[in-house]
């Protein structure tokens, strides 16, 4: 049986124009990716910069199509964007002219939820992400962490089966990031969504993921998928300093290390694209 989400030998190439020689060349972002995600799983993708992590997420989100291979959602190939998948962007992507409430309602409008039901649903989800009482604030009146909460509430409100998160906490300070990580785990357990989460932080990957897929440098392939067994994340326990955490961290660090240095060599050789 195949998983909830399956990448089957997926390759994505982009046509790029070399600025110096003005020749068209092809650029392979990911090559031969095979990956399965189970329903309700929390999967984290880590990889060196430029390894095609975001390309994989775009493929899942239906924002781009694979050059070869197939991306399946519940057995059917993904043909375009859809409201069965919610995307959370690194730069929040909030509409600055709408309040927190209005931003959550934006997703509901797109999903065709009847007008009368929207305010209630939006409040419910703002409450879920801990923003009760902030409904009428505009994005510029909210801190970075709170903006990302609004964005998460927006993606959850129209009830997608899958949540796609593209380095959502990368722009936040360390403390806000940790508290949002806990919050995300809590929400994930409560809603039972499938989460595909991209990060370049090994700590974040180990802390959040049930499994961590390590990608190679460009063109990206899945190098190894590491299952993380850290038991229950009980409140008040500093999981990040436990011995097991350190072991997983080191394991992924080793897997990544070669790739990162290779990626850096590549970046120096190839003109930036």
């Amino acid at each position: 049986m195949s998983g909830h989400i399956s990448f089957r030998d997926v390759t994505k190439r982009f046509a790029v124009r070399d600025r110096a020689s003005r020749r068209r060349t092809e650029f392979t972002a990911v090559r031969g990716v095979d990956l399965d995600v189970e329903r309700g799983e929390f999967l984290v993708l880590v990889g060196p910069s430029g390894c095609g992590k975001s390309t994989l997420l775009d493929l899942l989100g239906g924002l781009t199509e694979p050059s070869e291979g197939r991306v399946l959602l519940d057995g059917a190939p993904i043909t375009g964007p859809g409201l069965d998948r919610g995307v959370v962007f690194q730069q929040y992507a909030l509409l600055p002219w709408r309040t927190a409430q209005g931003n959550v309602e934006f997703g509901l409008e797109a999903a065709g939820v009847p007008r009368r039901e929207r305010p209630g649903r939006a409040r419910e989800f703002l409450d879920l992400v801990g923003l009760a009482g902030f409904e009428d604030r505009h994005p510029h009146q909210l801190s970075g962490g709170m903006r990302q909460r609004v964005a998460i509430a927006r993606s959850l409100a129209y009830d997608p089966a899958v949540l796609l998160m593209d380095e959502p906490f990368a722009a936040l300070d360390a403390q806000t990031r940790e508290s949002l990580q806990d919050e995300l785990l809590r929400i994930w357990r409560r809603t039972g969504k499938t989460v595909v989460f991209i990060t370049h932080s090994i700590d974040e990957a180990v802390y959040l993921g049930q499994r961590v897929a390590v990608l190679t440098s460009r063109p990206g392939r899945v190098k190894e998928v590491v299952g993380i067994e850290l038991g229950d994340r009980a409140d008040g326990v500093d999981l990040r300093s436990s011995a097991e955490f350190a072991r997983y961290r080191h394991r992924i660090w080793e897997l990544l290390h070669d790739e990162v240095s290779r990626a850096q060599r590549q970046e120096k050789e190839v003109a930036p694209v």
Binding site: G130, L142, S143, S179, L180
Partner: peptide, 16 residues
Amino acid sequence: MTALVEARPAVDEERP
């Protein structure tokens, strides 16, 4: 809960 405690002062800072 902890999250809210973290978040509230941030708003105060940014209030006009």
